[in-house]
Nucleic acid binder design. Structure first.
Lengths: 220, 220
DNA sequence: GAGCTTCTTGTACAGTCGTACAAGACTAAA
DNA sequence: TTTAGTCTTGTACGACTGTACAAGAAGCTC
């Protein structure tokens, strides 16, 4: 990869076309359900050329993952730069995350949904590729906790899984011609996770009590 | 399927073994990544026998989906029978849903995560199979709204997607030997979506205002 | 145990899979 | 224009794919 990067711009474009085509197919049919030949055809090259660029199918999906991280990372970083308020930065970051997830960059959903069914070795490479992205969210979370904006007693890693799970799953039902824009969905989800859904009359007196009651004890 | 059901019990068991083996493989490797032969071997029969029972690969995944719905439906129905309070019934139902998702019945995650990448025709058959399950949740939602337990102004279908998205995604990271039981996770998620995550001091005065502000306008 | 149905077996087919590689076509520097 | 390096092509390999089917085994009813 790095050797190719040192080369001419026309090569780069082509590389990108291959990755886009592959990401789209992986997203639509899954990793196992997509053939090298199908990727090559979608990219407008012959299978042999694809093998030359990516020696194995695994190399291909790892390259896609790296592109996905690069893309999402850039989106999120530029989005959160708009504000200094930790909570607002999370909201803006989630907007960007969802935008990246739903954009034509099919690479992101591939990284989200195909990770768990890849060979162990490949999965490890992809998780490694995703690291910088995980790190940025780690930072955003701690900032909001430090500022006291999130309720005391919350299991932050569980909340993170909750939120990302909900947000990522938008890719499973979102249609570009649907009634809501990605930004609207992201904002709606941000509000839901911030405020909850109970009507005021049905809420308990002490939030702290309620939060401390959940998930504090482990397995029997 | 119905013809086989009229037969002997030993046949039934075998049918179930096939579906379990197939579901596990589909879950692990995806639909496209799993071969008929692999399923047959995992079930302890020869490929020919599998073809006899399920004429095509599509028939196989549809049968798995039907089993998934049957299983999850039974779990949820027996769980919600424990209470008459609409909100509590939703909490109990979600517990059951998550239990079904994480149980050894791999069929449920297959239905959740593989749906969107199947051929259109197959997808339609699976959505049809899932109908009774969707219906029961529809009923649970409306009951809670009718009882005024959910905040006014909420987009209920969006909340449903939010909650199911978060809950279903547990299957992507849950490990049986992890620190939390499915029930604990389900309850934690129920609390989160009920109460939100903001600290009391960071909450706005009027919930209604906040909820009405989200996702009420459509695309530009 | 005869007769009928249900299921399993083993093998076969035509097609596709991931990958390899010699041979040729490009491109850029010398 | 030569040379060296990069990339594409076309073809090939053995393994595997989903499905089909004749032949036989097993089970149930009478």
């Amino acid at each position: 990869m790095s050797t190719a990067k040192a080369s001419v711009s026309s090569v780069h474009v082509s590389q990108d076309r291959i990755l886009r085509a592959a990401a789209r197919l992986f997203r639509e049919r899954g990793f196992g359900g997509t053939s090298i030949r199908a990727v090559a055809q979608a990219a407008g090259i012959l299978p042999g050329s694809l093998t030359y660029r990516f020696r194995t199918k695994e190399d291909l999906i790892v390259a896609i993952a790296e592109q996905a991280v690069e893309h999402a990372l850039a989106e999120v970083q530029s989005a959160i730069a708009e504000s200094r308020d930790p909570l607002e930065r999370i909201r803006l970051g989630m907007r960007a995350h969802l935008r990246a997830l739903l954009s034509e960059e099919d690479a992101v959903p591939v990284l989200v949904f195909d990770l768990h069914r890849l060979p162990e070795h490949t999965r490890a490479r992809l998780i490694e590729a995703r690291r910088p992205y995980d790190a940025i969210w780690e930072g955003l979370s701690y900032a909001a906790i430090g500022a006291g904006q999130l309720a005391a007693g919350l299991d932050v890693s569980l909340v993170k899984r909750f939120w990302f799970g909900a947000t990522n799953s938008v890719a499973l039902w979102y249609r570009p011609d649907g009634p809501l824009t990605p930004e609207q969905i992201a904002d709606a989800f941000s509000t839901l996770i911030a405020l909850g859904t109970l009507s005021p009359s049905a809420r308990p007196d002490s939030l702290e009590e309620a939060f401390k009651a959940i998930a504090t004890t482990g397995r029997p």
